[in-house]
Amino acid sequence: MPTQKQYSIAQLEKKANEIRQDIITMLLEAKSGHSAGPLGMADIFTALYFKVLKHDPKNPEWEDRDRLILSNGHICPVRYAAMAHAGYFKKEELMTLRKFGSRLQGHPERARLPGMETTSGPLGSGLSQASGMAYAGKYLDKKDWRVFCLMSDGEQECGQTWEAAMFAAKNRLDNLVAIIDRNNIQIDGFTEDVMPLEDLKAKYEAFNWHVLEIDGHNMEEIIDACNQAKAIHQKPTLILAHTIPGKGVSFMENDFKWHGTPPGVSDMPGEPAKDEQAKIALKELRTLQGKISSEHE
């Protein structure tokens, strides 16, 4: 059985930073796609692929693997980058994102890329699929692989998310861990302006889920929460991960304009000129927003 190599927290943080840089380079090359969500979820994807998940990049269909369902498919650049780093495919392929003939479709397609698990993009159906898998694993096949489902906060506005939440609790799917990217933005603005979601924790608790709240950029908290979830019996676990959309790139952080805009295609008021955007973003990532003077690779 393949096991995860032992990475230190510092190594994982460095990996997440490299993945962020890849996201910028991929989006710049693709000339379309989403910036904010992928940058905000780089730490969580790094923790999952390099610490938490039981998986085998050389055998993506391995029967006993943990399943990772990405419900909010538009943030797929971060998953593609993490998969490349984990060894599912060569990093050069990242540059084909969103291009004709690519396995890295604008929104992920299961049949094209081994390891993708499912097709998504249209929001709100991931938790249902994850619950279906978890039900099959726990009750029908009695296997001990686990199911992780990543969702966005915008998706909490979809009725289907709550239909799935009820099903998972009714069926005591303790092999299911949902992670919400609580970054407070969606397309038309901040979630609490578009459609208020709070109190999200209390809502899931009322639906009979076990809820853990974490800083989604704190590697230790992410890993601890995933481990804690294993000890929760008879309930599905929700990890409510507070994140900063656009994390690591100052002009993208906490700004919903960057939801679906890549660097390098549009001049926007108050933002760096389009030709400068990727350069500034990459420099900020390399220097941890100026905190270190010598850029590291």
Binding site: A30, K31, S32, G33, G73, R98, K99, Q105, G106, H107, E109, T119, S120, G121, P122
Partner: peptide, 8 residues
Amino acid sequence: VGPDGATH
């Protein structure tokens, strides 16, 4: 629609 792909 272009680069967004099949789902869109």
